[in-house]
Amino acid sequence: MEKRLLTLNVNGQDYELYINPKTLLVEAIRDHIGLTGTKRGCDTVSCGACTVMIDGMAIKSCSVLAMQAEGYQITTVEGLEVNGKLAPIQKAFIDNGSYQCGFCAPGMLMSAQALLNENKNPTEWEIREGIEGNICRCTGYNSIVRAIDGAAKGKYTEAKS
């Protein structure tokens, strides 16, 4: 198949790529742009390790083609921190021990942030539903739920930490 030129905006930066049109967004991000924070844990859109935000919404980046993401703002885990300062959700994950091996954390953080973008005061059940698409084999999820709850309640905003 003929390669195509496209521009992806990831974490505020435009990247010009010349790639096979079948390339998945996760492959473009990891293999072509070289941002390896985003992980991949399955081939069936089931585990959520590759979750990124597209215009603020959580999307499994193995479920879309890179070409489909052209023209949108893509955020990966590397885009959460600003000038060396961690985002509240990242601080919340550290404070609650919401990761162990850490392999699901990049995707989990994206689902968590996307949930908070959409719903400022989620209930516990809404938090659980918000991360249902992300598998974590280590933590048993409750520490992640506590972190998202704490972040939603403003416990980790700049002034308080």
Binding site: T36, L80, E81, L86, I94, Y99, A105, L109
Partner: peptide
């Protein structure tokens, strides 16, 4: 806090 925390929540790990 886990001492590998920053590496793991920023994608640096």
């Amino acid at each position: 806090h886990n001492i590998d925390g920053v590496a793991k929540v920023t994608g640096r790990a």
